[in-house]
Write a protein that binds this DNA or RNA. Sequence first.
DNA 1: CCCAATACCGAACACAGTGTTCAACAATGA
DNA 2: TCATTGTTGAACACTGTGTTCGGTATTGGG
Lengths: 191, 191
Amino acid sequence: MGKTRKALKEALTDLILEKGYEGVTVQDIIDRADVGRSTFYAHFIDKDDLLMAILADLEMPGLDPSSWKPDDPAFGWTLALFRHFGSVKRLFKAVASSQSGSVARRETTARLEKLAQAELSRLKAARKLDSFRLETIVRFLVGTFLGFMDWWMREENDHLPAEQVDHAYRSLVLPGLANVLELELELPKSL
Amino acid sequence: MGKTRKALKEALTDLILEKGYEGVTVQDIIDRADVGRSTFYAHFIDKDDLLMAILADLEMPGLDPSSWKPDDPAFGWTLALFRHFGSVKRLFKAVASSQSGSVARRETTARLEKLAQAELSRLKAARKLDSFRLETIVRFLVGTFLGFMDWWMREENDHLPAEQVDHAYRSLVLPGLANVLELELELPKSL
DNA sequence: CCCAATACCGAACACAGTGTTCAACAATGA
DNA sequence: TCATTGTTGAACACTGTGTTCGGTATTGGG
C-alpha cells in the first residue's frame, strides 16, 4: 500500500528540514528515497504536488465546527488546535512553516480561516459586523495564530508546552477581539 | 547617475506586480529594461541582489527611535509608519509583500523589530519583562503589523486611508499589549 | 575636438534542474 | 503461469542561470 509514495513523502519531509523547501531538488528526493526518476513522476506531478500530499496528512480531527455547542466558551478550542499541531510538529515545520512552500501555507491559512469564520458566526456579536470588518478580524486571528506557530516551531521554543503557547496567544490576541466585538471574554493576564 | 540600474529596478518592480517575484526571469527583466544580459550581471549578482537594491529605496525616514521623547504616547508612531509605507505602496507591494521574495521580507521584519524593541525598552513597563516575553511581544507587534500591511496592499483594500488601517491595527493589537504589560493605553473602539 | 576610460551589447557557452519517453526488468497475485 | 502493475535508468528536449569575450557606444576631462 503505497510504499514508494511513503518513502517519497518521508524523503521530502526530511530534506525540507535540512535545507528548506526551495533548496530541495527532485534529484535529492529520489536519491534519498532510493527511487527512480520516472517513478517519482508516476506518482506526483511535481514537487509541489508531493508537498500537498504531505499536507493531507496534517488533518485537523475533532476540530470540526459542526461539533461545537451553542454555549461553548468563545474560542475555547485554540488550545486543542495548538496541541494538535504540536503533535505533528515535524510535519508542520516541514510543510507549513513560513519558510516552506507557499502552497501549503495558503492551504493551511484557508482551513484556519474557515474555522475562525465559523466561530465568529456562532457568536451573536458577529451579527453586528459587516463582511468587511469580519474579514479583517478573521485575518487577524489566523495571521496571529500562524505567527505563534512559527515562533513555537523554532528550535529554541519547540520544547514549550502547548498550554504556554496558547496562554500567550490568548493574552495577546483575545483582548483585541473583546475590544472590537464588545464582548466579555475570559482574559488570561501576565503572559 | 545609474540610468541602467534604475531601468532594471523599475523593470523588476513592474514585473513582480504583474506575475510575482518567483515567476520573473532575468530574461524578462532585461527585455523590459532593454538592457544586455551581461550588463545585468555587471550591476547585480543575481535577481535577489536586485531586489535588495530596490528594498534600499524603502527607507523609513523620520521613524528614528532616537528622536522619540520620553513622554510621547506609547506606540504613537504607528500611524506614521502606515502612512510611510502607504506612500511607497507600489514599492512595498513589489518588495515586501508576503508573495515576494522572502529576502526582502526578512529585512523589513528585522527593521521593524528594532523599532518595536526600542519602543518597549522606552516604556518603563518593559523592565518587568524577561527577554523571552519581550521577544514574544516584539514578534506579535511586528507580525501583526505586516499582516495588516499585506491586507492593506490587496487590490480591494489599497484605496483605504492609512488612518483607517492604523485604527484597525490599534483596536485589535494594542488591547493585548495593554493586557500583558498592565499598561494604560488609549484604545480605539469599534474598528 | 579628441581619445581614453567606462559602460553597454549580445552571442556563445557550461551548467543545473525539470519533466517526458521508452524499452526492459521485478513483484505480485489470481 | 502469465498478465498486470510497479519500478528502473538512460536519453532527451527544454528552460533558466551566470560567465566570457570581442566589439561597439557614450561620455567627460584635457
